[in-house]
């Protein structure tokens, strides 16, 4: 397990570079993001451990970061002052560490940002001001604003279609927007699914009970099953949904975290494995039982926890999988000012 200490800054988000297997970005904030500055770390994995190749200080806290999918040295940050900043790490070392572009459109803290994984020519942000905004790096204003009317903690592009994106928010709903639909009163909203809905009733069993709505903090698209989304949030349960069948409730409920789940990420290598980070100071590896592409819609309740990493000493806020090499490497960051790079296989079977 490799470790890097983000001295004085509490990690909020970690992302592996999609271009280099040895480069990791960490968005961190002073004072746990309550007040103060933010810092974006660009870390390199070297034979001598993890070293900081570069960092950028920002005026306000940083809550998320996303690498550009089209440019190997650029990355975005989501900031507490409502702005998105695009940094370029290839600038000469003596140049001032300012962002090369900035979009200040949100009225409140921006809590997530994501680069379009398919078309690679746009990115999005979501904010507490109840909006998801879509930008293009070459344009100075956002190109589209999609209202969600509640604090949107997480928004993601579909990894399978260039025009589909999703968002989860504090109203306990998963929204899917399809930009191919005509702009109308619905603002491209094609699906709004209650996350707290009970799972489908099974024959011979008592109907499952509903749960009260809880704020959804994170979600992710499965990288292999193109209609599967995992969500998690304040109610501590990770749920997987099939957006083709929005009314049947969650396919799978992964129960185990003791506090709210802050981040989930599907494996880029395995169709059934996902990683979660939680306020209970652990990161956990799960299988939702939908492996091998047997039946994406089946496997209700077959999920299980496969491993647990408890080295963080404060809330774990970010996890990300390494896209390269062996299929178990990942990175996690937390409020203990530490970035950990570890292999999930080392946590299994214990």
């Amino acid at each position: 397990m490799l470790e890097f200490r983000t001295q004085g800054f509490n990690g909020y988000s970690v992302k592996y570079s999609p271009f280099f297997d040895s480069r990791i970005a960490v968005a961190a904030s002073a004072n746990f993001g309550l007040v103060g500055n933010g810092r974006l770390y660009i870390l390199g994995l070297t034979p001598n451990g993890i070293v900081a190749e570069k960092w950028f200080d920002t005026q306000d806290s940083l809550f998320d970061t996303a690498w550009s999918e089209s440019h190997e040295s650029q990355l975005l940050t989501a900031s507490g002052d409502g702005s998105l900043k695009l940094f370029d790490i290839a600038l000469p070392p003596d140049s001032p560490s300012f962002p090369i572009a900035q979009w200040t459109e949100h009225a409140r803290e921006v809590f997530s940002c994501a680069w379009n994984l398919v078309s690679k020519d746009s990115f999005l942000s979501s904010s507490w001001d109840g909006c998801v905004k879509i930008y293009r790096p070459e344009m100075q204003q956002s190109v589209l604003t999609l209202p969600t009317h509640s604090c949107t903690y997480s928004a993601q592009w579909s990894p399978h279609s260039p025009g589909i994106l999703s968002a989860v928010s504090s109203d306990s709903h998963l929204r899917v927007f399809d930009l191919r639909t005509p702009a109308s009163a619905s603002n491209h909203l094609t699906l709004k699914m209650p996350i707290h809905a009970p799972p489908k009733a099974m024959p011979g069993q008592p109907p499952p009970r509903g749960v009260p709505p809880a704020e959804a903090l994170t979600h992710d698209w499965n990288k292999y099953r193109d209609s599967i989304i995992a969500t998690a949030g304040v109610d501590r349960v990770i749920r997987t949904f099939d957006i083709r069948a929005p009314h049947q409730g969650p396919l799978c409920q992964l129960v185990g975290h003791e506090y709210a789940v802050r981040k989930v990420a599907w494996s880029p290598h395995l169709a059934d494995v996902l990683l979660s980070a939680s306020y209970d100071m652990t990161a956990r590896v799960w299988s939702d039982g939908g492996a091998m592409g047997i039946d994406g819609g089946g496997g209700v309740g077959m999920g299980k926890e496969m491993g647990r990493m408890g080295r963080h000493t404060e809330f774990v806020t970010g996890v990300d999988w390494c896209l390269f090499g062996a299929e178990g490497w990942c990175a996690s960051c937390g409020w203990d000012e530490r970035l950990l790079v570890w292999d999930v296989r080392g946590t299994m079977g214990s």
Partner: peptide, 16 residues
């Protein structure tokens, strides 16, 4: 809807 006047308050909601 979002309510929080400070980020901590928002975080506090996370703890359910």
């Amino acid at each position: 809807l979002c309510g929080p006047s400070n980020p901590l308050q928002n975080f506090q909601k996370h703890s359910n």
